[in-house]
């Protein structure tokens, strides 16, 4: 049980670190305003959903 919890926390930590490092990595020049050609699916909370783009 403790092994499983520790393993889960380790993987969660790896994900958190990778997310943080990715966030800190600068976007290449010319790619600051890339848009996915996305029509929007049922996941309306996604920041790439067209409804959010329209609000901006």
């Amino acid at each position: 049980m403790m092994i499983a919890v520790g393993f889960g926390l380790t993987l969660g930590g790896i994900f958190a670190i990778s997310y943080y490092m990715n966030m800190k990595t600068p976007v290449p020049e010319g790619c600051e305003s890339l848009q996915a050609a996305c029509d929007g699916c049922a996941m309306t909370h996604c920041h790439k959903h067209p409804t959010h783009q329209q609000e901006v």
């Binding site: 969660g12 790896i14 994900f15 990778s18 490092m21 990715n22 990595t25 600068p26 290449p28 010319g30």
Partner: peptide
């Protein structure tokens, strides 16, 4: 789930740094 999410993060980071054209 965590492995897939982490892999995507690392991949995006790697592409941002070393291949801007691929990232675009």
């Amino acid at each position: 789930i965590l492995v897939i999410a982490s892999f995507v993060q690392f991949t995006e980071m790697f592409i941002k740094k070393y291949s801007p054209s691929l990232y675009k």
